[in-house]
């Protein structure tokens, strides 16, 4: 899986170690082994492996994790740019469990054509 790493130093994942209680929920839901247990708290093991799916932050009962969750799907970003609302959803359906594509998230978070201020 070494080659299954996308661009470096781009992800928005943030860990607030102060709030972490070491419950381990993030270890359970993360599909890319981003975290490891470091004593009684969580530590980020492989930041660049994060795909910003948002499972860790949603399932952290103590709000120790934050990430700008979204779906890394160029087709959805383009479809949203072109104002095709339903088209973006279609790139999602075909893929059984393989694809995390979603239009709504992209609309909300995409900064591609609307640079962050």
């Amino acid at each position: 899986m070494n080659n299954m790493i996308y661009l470096r130093n781009v992800v928005t994942l943030k860990l607030n170690g102060e709030k972490c209680t070491g419950c381990g929920m993030c270890l359970e839901v993360c599909p890319h082994e981003v975290f490891k247990m470091n004593g009684k708290r969580i530590a980020v093991r492989n930041r660049d492996a994060c795909m910003e799916c948002g499972a860790c932050s949603r399932n952290c009962p103590f709000e120790a994790l934050s990430v700008q969750a979204g779906v890394g799907c160029a087709a959805a970003v383009i479809n949203t740019m072109l104002g095709r609302k339903d088209a973006a959803a279609s790139c999602c359906l075909n893929k059984a469990e393989a694809s995390p594509c979603s239009n709504k998230e992209v609309t909300r978070n995409s900064a591609f054509w609307r640079p962050k201020t």
Binding site: Y6, V11, G70, N109
Partner: peptide
């Protein structure tokens, strides 16, 4: 299964 929106 591994691309992030920030990366894309």
């Amino acid at each position: 299964t591994y691309t992030s929106l920030s990366g894309v």
